[in-house]
């Protein structure tokens, strides 16, 4: 089966510094792919390229649209690309302030994509927002509160609701659990796993936390200095790492 999203030989250089070099990857529905590596390894650059926010210097990203057509991202015009990113894709950011409208209520945050798609019935928007807040375990009576009054974990859950309300097929996540308390992290991980399974989402999650990768992902790509040094089944790569750098990463994790 053709993957939902695939990237071939993605390369991106910033003023002589290589952020990504020859990266290949693909992901399909119902699959969680983790991209791990230390900061500066090119994970976030890669994610920005996959989201269509950053053009690669070379290489190609292909996406299979809802009609089953496989299309190169660079051939999709900006209008359609933005429409795709609002409907077919989701992007959960590390910093909730970048992924949410902090001055807008939780309900407005969730409803924005619906309104962007032309929903013009306040009652319907409200009902769907409530439903999604419930699914991400945010109490209904918080619907009119802005995210500034939410805890870190709630903000991330709200980001998820805001992204999933249009039933996207691909969700990109950039360090969604970093900076959260451990117990809060667990709740978020559980939620992401449950929803991605239930909805059959393709998820690409960037994380520096190997435990997060292990618990959430089916497959993993280990990045170092802009290159994917090892890729495969998550548990295989983490339990029987072949590459020297992966061995170092795995052995550097503090055992709990």
């Amino acid at each position: 089966m053709t993957p939902l999203l695939s990237a071939q030989s993605l390369t991106k250089t910033y003023g002589g510094r290589t952020a990504c070099a020859g990266v290949d990857l693909d992901v399909t529905e119902g699959e969680v792919l983790a991209i791990v590596g230390e900061s500066g390894s090119g994970k976030s650059t890669l994610l920005s390229m996959l989201a269509g926010e950053l053009a690669p210097d070379s290489g190609e990203i292909r996406y299979r649209d809802r009609e089953g057509r496989v299309r190169a991202l660079h051939e999709i015009g900006p209008a359609e690309l933005r429409a795709l990113s609002r409907t077919d894709w989701g992007f959960v950011r590390q910093d909730a302030a970048q992924g949410l409208r902090m001055g807008v209520s939780a309900g407005g945050n969730v409803g924005e994509r619906l309104m962007g798609l032309g929903e013009r019935h306040y009652g319907h928007i409200r009902t769907r927002a409530l439903n999604w807040l419930d699914r991400v375990e945010i109490a209904a009576d918080r619907i009119d509160d802005p995210p500034t009054r939410f805890s870190g974990g709630m903000r991330q859950r709200l980001q998820i609701a805001r992204n999933l309300v249009t039933a996207p097929r691909l969700v990109l996540m950039d360090e969604p659990t970093s900076g959260l308390d451990v117990s809060v992290q667990a709740r978020l991980l559980d939620l992401i796993r449950r929803l991605s399974g239930e909805l059959g989402l393709a998820v690409i999650i960037v994380t520096h936390d190997l435990a997060v990768a292990r618990l959430l992902s089916h497959r993993i790509a280990v990045m170092r200095a802009g290159r994917v040094v090892e890729t495969g089944l998550t548990d295989q790569v983490l339990d029987d790492p072949a590459d020297a750098y992966t061995q170092l990463l795995v052995s550097s994790v503090l055992a709990a």
């Binding site: 451990v182 667990a186 709740r187 991980l189 618990l215 089916h218 497959r219 089944l233």
Partner: peptide, 26 residues
């Protein structure tokens, strides 16, 4: 391939390991 192995695990191979590795809150 990793995807084939995942499919095998889903329908053909069960595995009981020594340790339980699950998301803490579940």
């Amino acid at each position: 391939s990793p995807r084939e192995v995942l499919a095998l695990r889903q329908r053909t191979i069960a595995y009981v390991s020594q340790f339980l590795r699950v998301i803490p809150r579940v």
